[in-house]
């Protein structure tokens, strides 16, 4: 049972993700995580301002249940299935991150410089995380889907729009990491 505590290799991880999509397809549902953000906006009353959020969110309860599961899954994996959560990434990546001031590279699951307890009181970090999230939410809805909706289920169904969106994901990611990171950090 030792393997359960180890990081999962890419091939088994990919197969389980495909299984998750298949189970949802067989339930006649769509694998898409970012639509839940729209549903949550609707529950919070965004429909009063904008027609985009005026729909019967109760039809999306199944997906909110998946989200609840994803939270519980994170809890189970972190607390009962992992004894060392350090991420072993490429040594060149670690060296490069150190030049940007990320000393926790190679010894943590998330960089403590961004997600550690101290960051809760750091206005710069909080602003970065908020705007990062803002871009994720805005972009996902503008593009009509995120990694699950486009890169996995859209491309599995050979949708050209999904290919364009995934292309966009990588342009954006590339600009952020290579051009903007040296300015931000």
């Amino acid at each position: 049972m030792e393997f359960i505590y180890q990081p999962w290799p890419w091939y088994s991880s990919g197969m389980v993700i495909a299984l998750v999509m298949l189970l949802l397809q067989l339930s006649n549902k769509k694998f898409g995580m970012s639509s839940n953000l729209r549903t949550l906006c609707s529950i919070c009353g965004a429909g009063k301002h904008t027609a985009f959020f005026r729909f019967n969110w109760r039809d999306q309860k199944w997906n909110l249940t998946v989200v609840l599961g994803a939270i519980i899954g994170g809890y189970i994996a972190a607390n009962f299935m992992t004894d060392n959560s350090s991420i072993i990434i490429n040594e060149n990546t670690i060296a490069h991150l150190e030049t940007l001031g990320f000393e926790s590279a190679g010894s943590a699951y998330l960089p403590t410089e961004l997600f550690g307890k101290d960051s809760l009181f750091d206005p710069k970090i909080l602003t970065l995380l908020f705007f990062g999230g803002l871009f994720v939410g805005f972009g996902a809805r503008y593009a009509g889907g995120c990694t699950s909706g486009h890169a996995i289920s859209g491309l599995s169904n050979l949708q050209l729009p999904s290919l364009i969106a995934v292309f966009g994901f990588f342009i954006g990611g590339f600009i952020m990491i290579h051009l903007l990171f040296p300015l931000i950090f």
């Binding site: 995580m33 989200v67 994996a77 805005f138």
Partner: peptide, 26 residues
Amino acid sequence: RYLFGGIIFGLGWALVGACPGPIFTL
């Protein structure tokens, strides 16, 4: 919409290192 939305999403994804699914998991 797919190109512009995708680029904006990618900027955010690379900055916070999490797409919508992992946000909940984390």
